[in-house]
Design a protein around this nucleic acid. Structure first.
Lengths: 120, 120
DNA sequence: CGGCATCCGACAAGATACTG
DNA sequence: CAGTATCTTGTCGGATGCCG
């Protein structure tokens, strides 16, 4: 069994943060919910077609347990469930933004590199 | 065989970024190299005792391939190898910082929550 | 529609022993 | 010290079927 952060008081901030958002698809999910909110499961799926449903649900559950994401179930037929970021979850916006910004830098870096290589 | 980002031109910035720094221990490694640079393998290990050596080496290799980290080998006995962040790698500082900052927020959030729970 | 359960193959990760 | 080889364990992902 895994030891949750609740038992680990000696975590550094980065360890604590990574234990929560370090999951394979979590940043991507949070990114979606920053783009648009609330979102239904099927909508998240269309944002992230590369993630299979089982994984998506798992990661959503974990985010929900950690109170990053809130899940609202409407008792209707057919079922309707909406996901959105909690208050702490919304505070992740700078994280996602900085990652996207860096992605931009990195893309530029790659292009410069390939230009050098092809221009020899 | 895995398709590298080099063949994928349709990536969004976030996908590109995550494909590079999304590895399980990569943020942690980059964090180390931001604390102190250069670092030897054994030093990184002491920073990150929870990561086993094989994984550490793998992730370092991947970061090296993506030109995030540079690896310098000194031809001496006993062997000496130093790792440090490249220029693009150093640009990841805001990412790591924002993650740590959020970790701080989240810790506060947890403490407030447990205070509520225990104080009922 | 949202979600869980199951089976199954592929591969990532962990522990440990070993080499130059 | 840095890194490899090997074996075991665990996680991921697809497919499929079932339920409210």
């Amino acid at each position: 069994m895994e030891i949750s952060y609740k038992e680990k008081t000696f975590f550094t901030n980065k360890d604590l943060a990574l234990s929560v958002i370090g999951g394979r698809w979590k940043i991507a999910i949070i990114w979606c919910l920053l783009q648009q909110s609330p979102l239904r499961l099927s909508e998240i799926q269309s944002y992230l077609p590369e993630v299979n449903q089982r994984m998506l649900i798992r990661q959503l559950r974990e985010l929900e347990e950690d109170k990053i994401v809130t899940r609202v179930v409407y008792p209707v037929v057919p079922p309707k469930v909406e996901y959105q970021l909690s208050e702490v979850g919304l505070l992740l916006e700078p994280v996602v933004t900085s990652i996207c910004d860096w992605g931009d830098h990195f893309r530029t870096f790659l292009e410069e590199n390939s230009a050098e290589t092809s221009g020899k």
